[in-house]
Design a protein around this nucleic acid. Structure first.
Lengths: 360, 360
DNA sequence: GGCAGGGATTGAATCGTTTCACCGTGCGCA
DNA sequence: TGCGCACGGTGAAACGATTCAATCCCTGCC
């Protein structure tokens, strides 16, 4: 009476477009399909003899449970999404890598999505992740405000998909946050330069809609204010893409204009690299003629043409923490994970900063 | 008689742990569930009026088809896996990013896996990807030989999962390959240095099991041979991890030993960076005292302390091509995609190489 | 020896979608 | 008027695993 249960590919080494199914395993082991499921999910409740029979069958057929079917029946897909602006920015690479490490420890897979800071792409990815039935999402939002308005995002929240925002906070959103204190980081950069004696600053940053940029600027401004400087002490230049190329472009423009500041603070190391390169190519000496501070302290900061003073962020740790939060939400179901972890940035002084020249 | 079909959450704005299902949409639009499916998959065969009714219902409920259910019924998951040694190596970052770009254009999602060059981790990831029912896999194998032996890999092949090997070839495997001619690349590096007059080389490389390392070394050796040099002209140093830190360690050791070569060729830019840094810290001048050639030409190569001469690879293009091949295999079903694309590397000369000092 | 109880296993229902055989309806044509 | 056909739409089966109520079997106890 069990003969009828054969797989569509026969009972031997079941192969074809699809691998072996639990039916095949059950047939080969001479048990019911439910027992196979038990062996996989609750091995302890299965009698040792039965268990080893089933395990042998699983081995022989090379059976791997179909995650789609599993998910359909309510189980987890063991998959999380990671949405970042651009993994080719080393900062986000490390964020993603950290998240992947943590996920891997829990046997989860990671779907990586690059939003390229486009709200539209982000929204699109979110809905694909929803369709994929991911268990959770770690996201660095493309914008400070638009995510909250996204219908997909709202649905995701309502469906109680695990959610952790990396490196940024969202007003009025009930999610976990793994952030670095960007206001503090901005202040650190400014204070370092103030201590060296600088009084005139150039701030190269991305669009104001990027929360990190916004916060860092706030930190810089408050530090300058505390030092008794007026708003005119800080000149603000905004770039569209926070890339090395953009940094080069700005650096070139600055050189053309004649340098009017003694110090440059960049919203990330990539910009700083570009800027540095443009300066050096035009014979401007760093830090003698001008100081540069980067942000992120990516691995390459220390091997730059002039090793870069930068604000270090615990990048991998940030990703790990976010993944941890997401996993906690979707694994331990009702245990409430810490809602917010704020890391402190760290000033790393290298050779790109020094006291301004006397004559300035 | 259709009343019985309500969703478990009622007929209004259906919400809960799960989003709205096609049943909900069907109920709201007053059509059958099959019609909803038709609207989604073959809109052309549905009458315009019906179609717009259904589309309105989809909108209202925020319906997103469940990919698991879809897949279960034989459709694609619209997901591919990308397995690389380590995305925090910029070379692989770009490979992954290229693949993601291409996948995104076709509305596919990418699952990124870091094997850390561990055959065990690689195998584990492969079986998770199998369970996820990915449509295809782009992989840079952790080893030259072990993948062919992996049972999971064999199953994957038999199941006709789309497969593309990035940056490496596998003996006796029937898959697509997107590679760069590493033998040629190694030769280019050596020839450049030979032309400058170098005769004594140090080759810093990863384990021989890594195909790229192996091939590059072959290229170097044949170039030296062609130049009439014996095997003793090349000293080989092997590191476990091809990271900047490993480069620093080697660099330090070299300095301790006293430099016996006039040129160093590194199997990747990270090693070159580390080496460069160690040299500079000990007052050794590059390229005056010693020349360094990297490999990959990552973005940072040109902004290094001494801009690095390197062998450029079309990184993103490689990833894009691999993804393209995989997608072709799983989309156009029977159209045979090009089996192999070989890109040519390119020598980029910067400031880290020069003729050896006269007295050497 | 019979029965209660508990551990092991089974079988059927279920998840949400796709697919396909089938059914009405209305129209053109003989 | 009646036949056949095309078009739109329906409904049920199927995909592969999980879950849980039901069943079976064995052991130990009275």
């Amino acid at each position: 009476m069990r003969a009828i249960l054969g797989s569509r590919t026969g009972s031997g080494v079941a192969m074809g477009r699809q691998g072996a199914s639990s039916r095949d395993v059950a047939a080969l082991a001479g048990v019911s399909i439910g027992t196979v499921s038990n062996v996989i999910n609750r091995p302890d409740i299965v009698a040792p003899r039965t268990r080893s029979k089933v395990e042998a069958a699983i081995q022989e057929l090379g059976f791997v449970p179909n995650a789609s079917a599993r998910r359909l029946r309510g189980a987890s897909t063991r998959t999380i999404g990671v949405v970042v602006p651009d993994v080719s920015n080393p900062f986000f690479t490390d964020l993603a890598r950290g998240a992947e490490d943590k996920a891997n420890e829990a046997d989860f897979l990671v779907i990586v999505c690059n939003s390229d800071e486009s709200v539209i792409k982000e929204e699109h990815y979110l809905s694909m992740l929803e369709a994929q039935q991911v268990d959770g999402i770690c996201i660095t939002p493309a914008s400070r405000t638009s995510l909250q308005k996204s219908p997909t995002f709202k649905r995701l929240m309502e469906r109680k998909v695990g959610l952790a925002v990396m490196d940024g906070r969202l007003r009025g959103v009930d999610a976990c946050f793994a952030t670095v204190d960007d206001v503090q980081g901005g202040a650190m950069a400014a204070e370092h330069l103030l201590e060296l004696g600088h009084r005139s600053f150039l701030w190269i940053t991305g669009p104001d809609s990027i929360p990190q940029c916004y916060d860092r600027e706030m930190g810089i401004r408050s530090a300058l204010e505390n030092a008794g400087l007026g708003r005119e002490a800080l000149t603000r230049v905004e770039v569209q893409a926070m890339s090395a190329d953009a940094g080069v472009a700005i650096g070139e423009a600055l050189v053309q204009d004649g340098l009017r500041h003694t110090a440059v603070i960049c919203a990330n190391d990539l910009l700083a690299f570009g800027c540095l390169r443009a300066f050096l190519e035009h014979g401007i000496r760093v830090p003698d003629d001008i100081s540069i501070v980067g942000y992120d302290d990516i691995d390459f900061a220390r091997v730059a043409a002039v090793p870069l003073t930068s604000i270090r962020q615990p990048r991998r740790e940030l990703g790990r923490t976010a993944a941890q939060m997401v996993l906690a939400q979707c694994t331990d179901s009702e245990s409430v994970p810490p809602r917010e972890v704020i890391f402190q940035p760290q000033l790393v002084v290298r050779e790109s900063t020094a006291a301004p020249k006397a004559g300035t």
